[in-house]
Nucleic acid binder design. Structure first.
Lengths: 338, 338
DNA sequence: ATGAAAGCGCTAACAT
DNA sequence: ATGTTAGCGCTTTCAT
């Protein structure tokens, strides 16, 4: 096992002090008026012996780790996976490291993870908060640690938030269905009462009310597929379905397949959350696409800006516009077949 | 900003030394014969004041971080995302933290990331190596740091590897197509010469040769969809296609849609790598499913076992069995329509 | 233009 | 049964 070399080893070899080595290696040679030739010799020697700074020691001393902790609901979810990937790249460009972990939307898991990040002295936090994490987020803020919430936030808690226009997205999707002649539009949503979900529900409800149509809402959770089957059998008048998450859309498509119902002839379908595969389904699935790229850029940008400028984050909510990607599953249909 | 409390603060309050606090908080009270009542008082006080150990300091002292660094090709890829999620959970249960990052299969990016992990003093490494990372992996091994390679490995480098049975999977998939009556089976693979890809190619080639059929191979990269369209137009005799990655399968399905070809009537399709959506495509896509769960468990299990027992990893390659999930896209077809 | 030394928070060998 | 203290590798103030 190769021996680790510290600045002391280099200092000894070069017959200088560890301080000099530290200055040189941190680019403060000029500022400290260390001769260019000495500096160059130190740098050359350091790379020759494969010196690698011990960030642990550096962090202990400076209190900074250039590390950001990120909590998502599930890293295997395409939305979060993509967002993580984008933020990771930007963070790296700006000299930070992003570490992410999945909470499964469980406050206890999230608390544990936050403890880990705090112990690791993460400089900043990006959180898609599960319900019940308000106190911990406040604690972070009180301790002066910058935190950006995204995808959802905690109503009543002043914080820096970045979310998609969930209300507008659902409203737009519902209007689209109405304009294509559907009148009995059901909403399939999760039983979560988190803000991103209630906003989607509100967007749907408002469009439905404006059109004088009856709201038909299914709240489901674990057994989504079966619940949707029951919902469809109970409400044979349904001619369209809006799903509030990509996950529910998949369960819905399974339910439709099970009942041998075709979209849009038998029932139209719109998904909240797009997926690259949707254009290949038959029919291709109409979807509300969240601006993942913009969300990711905004989140990591606001956080690192705050870190770099040492300025507290603005306690404001950025609401980013979504777009409706119209495909076949919501097409106007001549005769209803159900 | 709340003041951080250290064991010294607690020691002062309790009128004991920092060592005593350290022992108690690390569960060594009994071993050090510290009275149970004192221990209890210290523990209670610590939680009252919200003491949080500074892992940075602890790590600097012990040289251990209970941290594992993981390099995948792309965290947004379902295979890697799922694997990461599973390993993360197991690591957490065993008291480790898994930090992952994406290399984009670029050796330079991977080197940078490895540097970061080394500076952060990660205790162990999990790597899906890009081409050209051999020297760095060797350096890790020489420094006594445990590393497990997965999904692929570096031929010629003795290391601890965990991979799927790529050869067997491709062989099985090709045999399945042959048995269903397809004789002009094309392979669509990436232009990578990494071992997981060449193994898949070999599996295909062997089955094809045994059946006395002509090999028809397309190696593609960036412009996969267009390449596949050209390939199909150049070889109108093709009656089946085996894709060596999930990503290529998607490009292939797009190409088929573009040419208005239907599977399996016009051309049968089998994908290497399964995806939850595949059963909902029309037709449902036959796929070789990698044992992600088992791969993940094996990788993290071997690594943590080595860490905990302080025993070097066995330099052996675990090859885990894949399964062929037969769906409609490869079904035997009465008359060929092309 | 460079060096000495304190100290970040913690652990563990050694003392008592 | 509990305390003292050195030191992990680094940065930075203060000296020279």
């Amino acid at each position: 096992m190769k021996k680790k070399i510290s600045i002391y080893d280099i200092a000894r070899e070069m017959n200088v002090s560890s301080a000099t080595v530290s200055y040189v290696l941190n680019g403060k040679a000029a500022q400290k008026r260390i001769s260019a030739s000495l500096a160059q010799r130190i740098i050359t020697h350091a790379r020759e012996v494969g010196y690698r700074p011990n960030m642990i020691a550096k962090s202990l001393r400076t209190g900074k780790t250039r590390t950001i902790g990120m909590l998502v609901e599930d890293i295997a979810d395409p939305f979060f996976g993509t967002a993580a990937r984008i933020m990771e790249g930007i963070a790296r460009q700006r000299g930070y490291h992003l570490f992410y972990a999945s909470t499964a939307n469980d406050a206890e898991v999230a608390k544990g993870l936050l403890d880990v990040f705090r112990s690791a002295q993460a400089d900043g936090y990006i959180i898609a908060p599960p319900p019940g994490l308000v106190a911990e987020i406040q604690a972070l803020q009180e301790d002066g640690l910058p935190v950006v919430l995204f995808d959802r936030y905690c109503p009543g808690l002043p914080s820096a938030n970045v979310v998609a226009d969930n209300f507008g997205g659902a409203y737009k999707a519902t209007r689209h269905l109405l304009q294509n002649g559907f009148r009995r539009i059901g909403l399939v949503t999760s039983d979560s009462s988190q803000v991103q979900m209630t906003d989607r529900l509100r967007g749907y409800a408002q469009a439905i009310e404006e059109a004088d149509c009856p709201p038909l809402i299914l709240q489901t959770s674990a057994a989504a597929k079966q619940d949707i089957i029951d919902f469809l059998e109970r409400h044979t008048e349904l001619d369209a379905l809006l799903f509030t998450t990509g996950y529910l859309t998949m369960s819905g498509l399974e339910a439709l397949a099970h009942l041998q119902l075709r979209a849009p002839e038998d029932i139209a379908v719109v998904s909240f959350d797009d997926h690259p595969h949707f254009s290949l389904f038959s029919p291709a699935v109409t979807a509300v696409a969240q601006p993942v790229q913009t969300i990711a850029e905004t989140v990591i940008g606001r956080l690192i800006d705050s870190l770099e400028s040492n300025t507290p984050l603005a306690l404001q909510t950025d609401i980013l516009p979504i777009s409706l990607i119209i495909r076949d599953s919501s097409a106007r249909v001549a005769v209803q077949h159900r």
